[in-house]
Design a protein around this nucleic acid. Structure first.
Length: 286
DNA sequence: AAATTAGACAACCGCCACGTC
DNA sequence: AGACGTGGCGGTTGTCTAATT
């Protein structure tokens, strides 16, 4: 895809976990300017990371609309079902799980669901840790998960034998309560209430670019009251979020009221990340 | 209380597809 | 046509934390 303006800094890139400060820089930069060409993001954002690392951090962790924490029973069932037909196509599976990333789905599968499926006598092939035996290499026909297994997973009693992994930064009980609606399209407001406990009411703030970041022990989640573009123009902000038609549509959101609230913002972003009209990944299901 | 182990999650690596020059 | 660069994906590894000994 080549990017004329991309100059390659030959600096030693920082590796490892991201500090809250780095997150802040990346977040601020992308929210103000869009990512554009990822290889230039680190330099412009003042980060000593490579573009790839920034992209991954944004997609898997910083991007608005991400759902974190427990997978609902419905989500689990979806993952198992899709894995049976698609194999290890985590990105495609994640497309069916709004707010979930491929990495998250993959981790969840490898650390938890795989065992669950095996335990229930589902497709043993999925449990294979080796590439050669991986389900992705098998035809869908050989990767069937019994309906019974999926039903069991969907059922509330299924959680009994194997407790889902704890989210260290999350209040388990309150989280369960907010996630249960089946196949939720996470609205911004919903997402806010998921990531932050209900005591924090954020939507009442309408002050300009209302981004507050707070470094929790495990995840510095972020919160928006509303997002309003100030400083850079909305078109600057939109750069990197999509093609012109997409941007035009999104731009309307800015121009008419200057804010993107709730599901709209998430939906737009997920369109982008899932290959909607922006990327080259036209096998996207959306 | 300290050491060890296991599990969960974050991040990196390598490969590939595609676009541009 | 081929080299080069970017973005995306899946596999793997590294790190951190909690549980266990």
């Amino acid at each position: 895809m080549g990017c004329k303006t991309c100059e390659k800094p030959k600096v030693g890139y920082r590796k490892g976990l991201w500090s809250p400060d780095e997150d802040q820089k990346l977040r601020d930069y992308i929210l103000r300017h869009g990512h554009g060409c990822w290889s230039t993001v680190p330099a412009k954002a003042g980060l000593q990371r490579n573009g790839k690392s920034c992209r991954l951090r944004w997609i898997n962790y910083l991007r608005p609309g991400l759902k974190r924490g427990f997978f609902s029973a419905e989500e689990e069932a979806t993952v198992i079902k899709l894995h049976a037909t698609l194999g290890n196509k985590w990105a495609q599976i994640a497309m069916h799980l709004p707010g979930r990333t491929d990495n998250e789905v993959k981790n969840y599968w490898n650390s938890y669901l795989k065992k669950k499926v095996v335990k229930l006598g589902g497709s043993n092939s999925h449990a294979s840790p080796t590439k050669s035996q991986d389900s992705a290499n098998q035809s869908p026909e050989t990767r069937q998960v019994p309906e019974e297994v999926i039903k069991q997973i969907s059922g509330s009693d299924f959680l009994e034998p194997l407790e889902p992994p704890m989210q260290s930064s999350m209040d388990q009980d309150s989280f369960k309560g907010t996630l249960l609606p089946p196949f939720p399209k996470v609205l911004f407001a919903d997402w806010l209430s998921m990531d932050y406990n209900s005591s924090q009411s954020l939507l009442n703030s309408n002050a300009g670019m209302n981004c507050q970041w707070d470094s929790n022990s495990n995840a510095d989640l972020f919160k928006y009251g509303s997002y309003q573009v100030d400083g850079p123009s909305s078109s600057d902000f939109l750069h990197g979020f999509g093609d012109s038609s997409f941007c035009g549509e999104l731009q309307l959101q800015f121009e008419h009221g200057g804010q993107i609230l709730g599901g709209a913002f998430y939906n737009y972003l997920s369109m982008d990340e899932n290959g909607g009209s922006c990327g080259r990944n036209h096998d996207a299901i959306y």
